[in-house]
Computed example of a mutant assay.
Amino acid sequence: MTLMNLLAGWGITPPLIEHPPLFTCDDADRLLVERPGTRLKNLFLRDNYGRRHALLLTRSDKQVDLKVLSRQVGWSRLGFASADRLQRYLGVEPGHVSVLALVHDRERQVELWLDRELEHGDDFHCHPLRNTATVLLSKTDLLRFTSRTGHTPLWLPVPAP
């Protein structure tokens, strides 16, 4: 079953936009990709010991102070998880990450952190497990999706440097 079919079965039918591969937010900027809604940066993080993992969603243009965020959430030294961990926990390669990859985290080993600055956003730009397309996921559908996958979002003020 494809991701889009799964979403439709859950009553989630976002628009799908095909495009050239976009590995980073900068790639979208270079291609002058303009779409309505809220562009996201998706950071797959791990604690210092590699025992805890989180997917952080924030604005595409925001720099994140991982040292301050680490203290804020009470985790030992946050860092970026490796490509191997990304594949193991979310089933995608670097450049293909979005909240939709949580569909692969059936054991709910990855926490979902959402920047409070996104609370009033809508039509969130998400790769549907591949970086050659984007879906525009409404806030309602985002929360419906996370409910169906068993991931309760933690809304937090994400610190910038």
Rank of each mutant, 00 (worst) to 15 (best):
L3I: 12
L3R: 10
M4N: 06
N5G: 08
L7H: 05
L7C: 11
L7S: 04
A8G: 04
I12A: 04
T13M: 07
P21W: 00
C25L: 00
C25G: 02
D26L: 10
D26T: 12
D27H: 13
R30D: 07
L31H: 14
V33N: 01
T38E: 14
R39H: 12
R39W: 13
L40Q: 01
K41F: 13
L43H: 12
L45H: 11
R46D: 00
Y49W: 11
Y49S: 14
H53N: 02
A54C: 12
A54D: 05
L55G: 08
L56D: 11
L56M: 10
L56Y: 10
L57Y: 09
T58L: 01
K62D: 05
K62G: 03
K62H: 10
V64C: 11
D65Y: 01
L66M: 07
V73K: 00
V73R: 01
G74C: 07
W75Y: 13
S76R: 15
S76H: 13
L78N: 08
L78P: 10
L78R: 07
F80V: 09
F80K: 02
A83N: 02
R85S: 14
R85P: 00
L86E: 11
Q87C: 03
E93F: 06
P94Y: 07
P94K: 08
G95Q: 08
G95L: 09
H96Y: 02
L100E: 09
A101G: 10
L102M: 15
E107F: 02
R108F: 02
Q109H: 13
Q109R: 15
V110T: 13
V110K: 07
D115V: 06
R116E: 15
R116G: 11
D122S: 03
D123G: 06
F124G: 00
H127M: 10
P128H: 11
N131S: 10
T134C: 07
L137Y: 06
L137H: 03
S138L: 02
D141C: 09
D141T: 07
L142S: 11
L143M: 14
L143D: 08
L143S: 05
R144T: 15
R148G: 02
T149G: 05
G150F: 10
P153T: 07
P153V: 04
L154V: 14
P159T: 06
A160L: 00
